[in-house]
Each structure stands twice: as structure tokens, then as C-alpha cells.
Simulated assay, not measured.
Amino acid sequence: MKFTPTPLPGAYLVDLERRGDDRGFFARFFCENEFARAGLVNRFVQVNNSVTAKKGTLRGMHFQLPPAGEVKLVRCVKGALFDVIVDLRPDSATFGKWFGAELTAENKTMMYVPRGFAHGFLTLTDHVEALYLVSDFYSPENERGLRYDDPKIGVHWPAVVHEVSEKDRNWPGLDADFHGIERMRGLL
């Protein structure tokens, strides 16, 4: 696997090292040893599957507070999506900054999302399917969300947002108290 740092410290794009011939290719989606050598979390407790029917559907921006903070490894296995992360670690020089990348079934690129980051995506095609490896179990009491169109963050979504769940539409803009920012101190 090839680990490419993003502009947000601790977050990576992960590309497969394909070995193939005229029949196709073989590649590791995940290898505990390779992630450990790269200094990344290499223990995942869940694999989540997200299916979205329509282009222009936004899911996010979600995260969990410590002690249930999650690391995610996200891959699009059908269609295309624009994956976005926001650094919410108060000790980080990139606090409040965002990064986005197109993940598609064709490019097979994955997003490694560290603890202390909000995460969401916008579908760029109909019939999108994504898989997430997640390092911690879902903890409803630690769940939070950040408004996807918060002007303080300023994410530039590459397409029109047509659908957003009521829950995601009603998350507040960045608010230190609501979002538990102090609980994410020391995650660097």
C-alpha cells in the first residue's frame, strides 16, 4: 500500500499496490503490518457498509468524542463520492481546516481518517457504496456532528447537495462546547 499524507497532519490517502496481469489484479485492502509500519492505527473492530441511491446526497459530518473516538478507513466500492475530513483537534495547526478527495470504485483510493476529525461525503453518482473500517464501536453518547455547510469551515463541495438527512441538516456549526473540542486535546 502507498500512504500519501494529506495537508492535515495524521490523515492519509491510501492507494493499493496492484499486482496483476491480463486477468485482472490482486491488492491488499488492509494489512495490519503495513499500517503499523506507517505508524497508523492497525486495529479495527467494525466494517460498516453505506449504500446511497442518489447522486447529490450528503452524509456527514460525523465523529465520536474520546474515549470512543474513531479512526476510519473509507473506500468507495461502487460509484463515486467526494470524501471530506475536518480537523477538530484543538492542538493542531490545521484546526478547523478541511481536506477532500474523490474516492471512486475505479481509483480504489481510500481515506484514512484519524481520531479528532469530522468525516462526511457527497455522492457524485447514483448507486454509491462505501465500506468503512472503524477502530471503535459506535457510542451514541459520544456521537457528534458538524454542519456540512458551516461558513467557518467553508467546505467547497464539488457538486450541488440535493439531499441531506434531517439529523445532518440540523447539526450546529463549529461550537467548542457542543462539539467537545477540549476532549480532543492531545490527539496529535
Rank of each mutant, 00 (worst) to 15 (best):
F3K: 01
T6D: 03
T6C: 04
T6P: 02
P7L: 11
P7E: 15
L8F: 13
P9M: 02
G10Q: 04
A11G: 06
A11C: 07
A11S: 15
A11T: 03
A11M: 03
Y12C: 05
L13T: 13
D15V: 09
L16F: 12
R19M: 09
R19F: 15
R23F: 05
G24Q: 08
G24N: 13
F25H: 12
F26T: 11
A27Q: 03
R28E: 14
R28T: 10
F30T: 11
C31K: 15
E34K: 06
F35L: 06
G39H: 09
G39R: 08
L40D: 06
N42G: 01
N42L: 01
R43H: 13
V47M: 14
V47T: 14
V47K: 10
N48G: 03
V51D: 11
T52K: 01
A53W: 09
K54R: 14
G56Q: 07
G56I: 05
T57F: 06
T57M: 12
R59E: 01
M61A: 03
F63T: 03
Q64T: 05
P67M: 11
A68F: 06
E70W: 02
L73A: 05
V74Y: 05
V77W: 06
V77D: 07
K78Y: 10
L81M: 15
L81R: 01
F82R: 03
F82Q: 05
F82K: 01
F82Y: 15
D83P: 08
V84H: 00
V86C: 11
L88A: 03
R89F: 02
D91F: 07
D91A: 03
F95W: 10
G96K: 03
W98Q: 09
N107H: 11
T109M: 11
M110F: 06
Y112M: 09
P114A: 10
R115W: 00
H119E: 09
G120N: 04
G120W: 02
D126S: 10
D126R: 12
H127W: 07
E129T: 12
L133M: 12
L133C: 07
S135P: 08
F137H: 15
Y138I: 09
P140G: 11
E141L: 13
E143K: 07
R144Y: 00
G145R: 01
Y148E: 01
Y148A: 10
P151I: 13
I153W: 07
H156Q: 15
A159P: 01
A159Q: 11
A159K: 12
A159E: 15
H162F: 10
H162R: 14
S165T: 15
E166M: 04
K167Y: 04
R169E: 05
R169C: 00
G173V: 04
G173M: 03
A176Y: 08
D177L: 12
F178D: 00
I181T: 04
I181G: 01
E182W: 01
E182N: 07
M184V: 04
R185D: 08
R185L: 07
R185T: 13
G186N: 10
L187Q: 02
L188Q: 09
L188C: 11
